[in-house]
């Protein structure tokens, strides 16, 4: 009976696969490869498989984590290559191992938020946005689970921020809280759009770069 953790990349065409669809997709990938997942007990057994941190549709990631259980003793060596033969385009396993750290220790996310400006980056945008996001508080409206709108301050969930400028592109490199509570990196762009409407980007692209723990060390 082995618990295993799979580290994988999700990018390109695959970023539009939703959480639930990705779950189904992985179940099938394992079956194609011939790996039998351990199933829950009960009247309707289902395979034991879960993502550490669900990823929003449309966002790419270099560091997705999938936990699952198999019926045999194995350490996961060689599994990424074996699974990759059966993946849809844009999903690629990079590592598989027996997990030592519980998912709750996954505290932060290093991520990249691209703000694309078709007409070129407005003068001083990088400084303005940095000032805004690193200010005392950054309040935005967010829909709650009860569908009401609530004000939340995202500032406490932003741990570091760098902004790089290229022609037509501002890249925010940030470390944000991953869970309890976590923030969707897309909110950085949303905050800029609300508070600095004149600097609103034409398109926003988000990519998770690395999962980190509380101390900022890489979480595996």
């Amino acid at each position: 009976m082995g618990k295993l953790r799979l580290l994988f990349v999700k990018e390109g065409r695959a970023v539009y696969i939703s959480h639930l669809d990705l779950l189904r997709t992985f179940q099938r990938v394992f079956l194609r490869q011939g790996l039998v997942l351990r199933h829950s007990q009960g009247f309707h057994p289902h395979p034991i498989i879960s993502f550490a941190l669900p990823l929003s549709v449309g966002q790419a990631s270099d560091c997705e984590i999938l936990d699952f259980e198999v019926n045999e003793d194995m350490d996961g060596a060689g599994l990424p290559e074996a699974l990759n033969a059966f993946m849809p385009e844009g999903i690629r396993a990079v590592d598989c191992y027996i997990p030592v750290r519980p998912v709750r220790e996954l505290a932060r996310l290093r991520c990249r938020v691209d703000l694309v400006y078709d007409g070129g980056v407005p003068e001083g945008a990088a400084e303005e946005i940095k000032k805004l996001l690193l200010g005392e508080s950054v309040v935005i409206q967010k829909r709650t689970k009860r569908k009401a709108m609530a004000d939340i301050d995202i500032r406490p969930m932003l741990h570091s921020l760098d902004i790089l400028e290229a022609p037509g592109l501002l890249t925010l490199e940030a470390v944000v809280s991953a869970q309890n509570p976590g923030m969707n990196p897309a909110l950085l762009a949303a905050a800029a759009e609300v508070h600095l409407p004149e600097l609103a980007a034409d398109f926003v692209r988000v990519r998770r770069l690395e999962m980190l723990d509380e101390k900022g060390e890489i979480f595996r």
Binding site: G12, R13, G58, F203
Partner: peptide
Amino acid sequence: MDQRLERILPRVQKPARYTGGEYNAV
């Protein structure tokens, strides 16, 4: 992926049906 497409897909329902790239797509 086409950059124009990348911009509209986040706004439509069930975007995965417009991307291709499925397993066994030729």
